[in-house]
């Protein structure tokens, strides 16, 4: 057995050897690899790389969606127009408000929930139940809450009446539409985020808490000096992902916040988030396809910068822990 295996292993090793060598064998690698990579390479080129280049080119053009062949180059005009576009700044401001409320509340609630669960139970039923909102389509969630927030038949209005307040038409109110939309997504994503944190908490050694309680530390002290520092990498990562997702809110606004048909961005443009504004420019307004591409380019650059900044923060955190 051994004698039979040894020469085979030896020949295998000698066959491996030249692979580490020069380019001729690397090309051999491509000969095999291309068959495995072909579908995804096509997918990447056709649906990511080329569209990215095309979108950037479109952003320097004046284009009608009906006749993109008749595009005219306008240089930086779309970008300079955006800087002076009050509707753009409004949508940026509205989106920022949405993100701050959404991420702020969601992160705190999810963290609390995760700590609670890690102390109480590992029950699958509990975890599956709090994950339920996440698995439902955004559109569906938007419609559920459109009904729940309805000022006449919605349940929230009944609670208000019960406590002697006048019902508020949250989703039709210029003041409340953004907080209401943000809360809808808090409902949708808190359980999901809590599960991510929960997974992170599981990796913290239990003995740290035991040692803490022997030393007489309170729950809050342990939370601050054990949980938060050790959870920080996951905390940061989850926040990057949530933040980027939150800036791209669209579905819920389409379903519950005035929508994309009829009069978009109701009420009075107070729910016209960036995605909605880009969509309008691309598909509803005349000759604004290039303008929409420019808006999307700005959004992409902005999100890339946020990601890179956060990733740098992440790296700092990891070295902290090591």
């Amino acid at each position: 057995m051994t004698t039979a295996a040894a020469p085979v292993a030896g020949s295998d090793a000698s066959a491996e050897k030249p692979k580490r060598g020069k380019s001729s064998v690397d090309n051999d690698g491509w000969k095999v690899a291309i068959w495995f990579l072909l579908p995804s390479l096509i997918g990447f080129l056709v649906f990511y790389l080329i569209p990215t280049i095309r979108a950037i080119r479109l952003s320097f053009q004046k284009v009608s969606i009906l006749n993109p062949a008749a595009a005219t180059s306008v240089g930086w005009e779309n970008y300079t127009d955006i800087m002076e576009d009050a509707d753009f700044w409004n949508s940026a401001w509205v989106t920022l408000q949405y993100v701050v409320i959404n991420i702020g509340i969601q992160t705190v609630l999810a963290l609390g929930l995760a700590v609670l669960m890690s102390r109480l139970t590992e029950s699958l039923i509990v975890r599956a139940t709090i994950l339920l909102p996440w698995i439902l389509p955004n559109i569906l969630v938007g419609l559920l809450f459109l009904f729940i927030f309805d000022p006449t038949v919605g349940i929230v209005a009944q609670v208000f009446k019960f406590f002697g307040f006048d019902p508020i038409a949250f989703l039709a109110s210029t003041t409340w539409v953004i907080p209401a939309l943000a809360l809808i997504n808090v409902w949708k994503f808190t359980g999901y985020t809590a599960l991510l944190f929960f997974a992170g908490l599981q990796t913290i050694p239990k003995m740290l808490y035991e040692a803490g309680s022997i030393d007489g530390a309170t729950e809050w002290q342990m939370f601050r000096s054990i949980t938060i520092p050790l959870l920080r990498p996951i905390l940061a990562l989850v926040m990057v992902v949530s933040l980027i997702g939150s800036f791209q809110v669209f579905d819920v606004v389409a379903a519950a916040g005035g929508g994309v048909q009829g009069s978009p961005g109701d009420p009075l443009g107070k729910s016209r988030v960036l995605y909605l504004y880009i969509y309008e420019n691309a598909f509803l307004f005349q000759n604004k396809f290039g303008y929409a591409a420019a808006l999307a380019t700005i959004l992409m650059i902005f999100l890339t910068v946020i990601t890179l900044l956060q990733l740098r923060l992440l790296r700092a955190d990891q070295s902290d822990l090591a």
Partner: peptide, 10 residues
């Protein structure tokens, strides 16, 4: 990191 709406237009 590419937002879907960015590639959706082209």
């Amino acid at each position: 990191v590419v937002p879907p709406i960015f590639t959706m237009i082209p």
